[in-house]
């Protein structure tokens, strides 16, 4: 049998193990025939599992404000990178591309969520070691 050296891989790596979507019938929840693109203001970020949810107020052309909730990923890996519940502050202006709920409610999954100026979320300068979260080891 062969010796094994332990290498640490940082960066995108091939997922083995169970598929990320396996626990969740996305196709039943959201409708690919109802794409959405919303711009709004974050009112709350539910930093929870199995999915985090961004709540935002979206002002329509008529001035009417609708509340949406947008599904995202588990936040646990963000914690490991040093992000916290304060990393998406209330009042942030974001743009959400995604798909709306099949039942027509103001719920969606966010396939691409960015700040109004185009920056991706969670790519700020948070340093590892903040809030007790350490970086993956070098």
């Amino acid at each position: 049998m062969r010796a094994m050296s332990a290498l640490l891989i940082a960066g995108a790596a091939l997922l083995t193990g169970l598929p990320a979507w396996a626990h969740h019938a996305f196709a039943q929840e959201f409708d690919e025939k109802r794409p959405i693109k919303l711009q709004g203001t974050v009112t709350k970020w539910e930093v929870i599992n199995p999915h985090s949810w961004i709540h935002l107020d979206v002002k329509g052309p008529d001035g009417k404000v609708t509340s949406w909730m947008i599904e995202g990923g588990s936040p646990n890996a963000l914690f490991r990178q040093g992000f916290t519940k304060d990393s998406l502050p209330t009042g942030s202006e974001i743009v959400v591309e995604g798909f709306q709920a099949k039942d027509g409610s103001t719920r969606g999954v966010g396939s691409n969520v960015v700040f109004k100026d185009g920056r991706k979320l969670f790519l700020s300068n948070n340093t590892p070691g903040q809030n007790g979260a350490a970086a993956p080891e070098n």
């Binding site: 891989i9 940082a10 599904e71 995202g72 999954v109 396939s111 969670f122």
Partner: peptide, 29 residues
């Protein structure tokens, strides 16, 4: 696969946005 997942016509959320595609593993032969 990430590029495929980013297909705008597929219902999904962005795994990479949440760092869920990062992992620490032992490479084995």
């Amino acid at each position: 696969r990430a590029a495929r997942d980013a297909d705008p016509n597929t219902v999904h959320y962005d795994l990479g946005q949440f760092g869920l595609d990062q992992r620490v593993t032992a490479v084995s032969n």
